[in-house]
């Protein structure tokens, strides 16, 4: 036991016995702050003891700020970057990120039934690099705030969604399924011709400016857009390729997508199995 710990022990024993029960939560944060300060040995012991309280209050404040920041980003449907949390919210305390992040998660789950989910990074387009990653999931240091309450609680009589949200979600699912059954990617020309066939004009009352809407999906992490190099594209014009973004991968399970697409056909039994097999094949997923 270090001399400081012993002294705290003595101080505590002089107090009411009941204090024992209130200690664990605060000593937890003190331990953390002690660990943080060990990197900075210039503090003398008295200083560190005086600042321990301050530090745990500070951490608490930063946790609450991070919760607020996560809610605000979600409200804008924006992905949440670890760098932005460190730079905009934690500032001088960015080294405490792991401790603050864990407490933020606990608070988000407790208060709102939500949690930050780290998105899977862009898969390497280069097959060699993909092989090098060896099937391991590459995390992206970006997060989305996800609802973790059971699905049936997301009832429209309880949770309000605007008409705009419904409309753009509908269109997003159409685009995601088009890409899905096209072996997971689609160039912009083909996507545009599909949208034209669905009579979604370049500019409409309902969806606004089509290009801007697609930009929005890309920004929110639902779609990923990649410029193909001239060789692959076999064209002088720049060709862009769309695929599912990290957020779609996190929020839309493959089997839900297959279920959605097959539900259009009203088939059952073995016919449904055959249909789903062919959807997986179109998505170039081995079953």
């Amino acid at each position: 036991m270090s001399s400081r710990a012993r002294r705290q022990r003595i101080l505590r024993d002089e107090d009411d016995e009941d204090d024992e029960y209130t200690q664990p939560s605060t000593s937890g944060t003190q331990r953390e702050s002690k660990r943080i300060r060990q990197e900075d040995s210039s503090y003398n012991e008295l200083d560190s003891q005086l600042t321990a309280e301050q530090t745990s209050q500070d951490l608490e404040r930063k946790v609450n700020d991070t919760v607020r920041y996560a809610l605000a980003c979600e409200h804008r449907k924006q992905v949440i970057r670890k760098d932005d949390i460190a730079r905009k919210v934690l500032t001088d305390r960015s080294r405490s990120f792991p401790a603050i992040f864990d407490k933020t998660q606990a608070k988000l789950r407790h208060l709102f039934g939500m949690e930050l989910t780290e998105l899977v990074s862009k898969e390497k387009s280069n097959p060699a690099k993909r092989a090098a990653a060896n099937g391991k999931v590459v995390l992206s240091k970006t997060y989305v705030l996800r609802n973790i309450l059971p699905e049936e609680q997301n009832d429209p009589q309880i949770i309000h969604h605007t008409d705009d949200e419904y409309q753009s979600t509908g269109l997003l699912y159409v685009i995601l399924s088009l890409i899905f059954v096209n072996e997971q990617s689609m160039n912009d020309e083909l996507l545009m011709s599909h949208l034209n066939r669905l009579r979604i004009p370049e500019e409409s009352e309902t969806f606004g400016d089509r290009a801007r809407m697609l930009d929005g999906f890309v920004k929110q992490g639902y779609l990923q857009r990649q410029k193909l190099n001239a060789e692959v594209a076999q064209s002088d014009q720049p060709v862009f390729q769309y695929s599912w973004g990290p957020r779609a991968k996190a929020e839309v399970p493959e089997q839900n997508m297959v279920g959605l697409i097959s539900s259009v056909y009203h088939v059952q039994g073995s016919e449904l199995d055959r249909l789903q097999d062919s959807i997986y094949k179109a998505a170039s997923i081995d079953t």
Partner: peptide, 10 residues
């Protein structure tokens, strides 16, 4: 918790 989600949306 669910009521808070509702209020966040409304």
């Amino acid at each position: 918790r669910l009521f808070m989600q509702s209020m966040l949306s409304h």
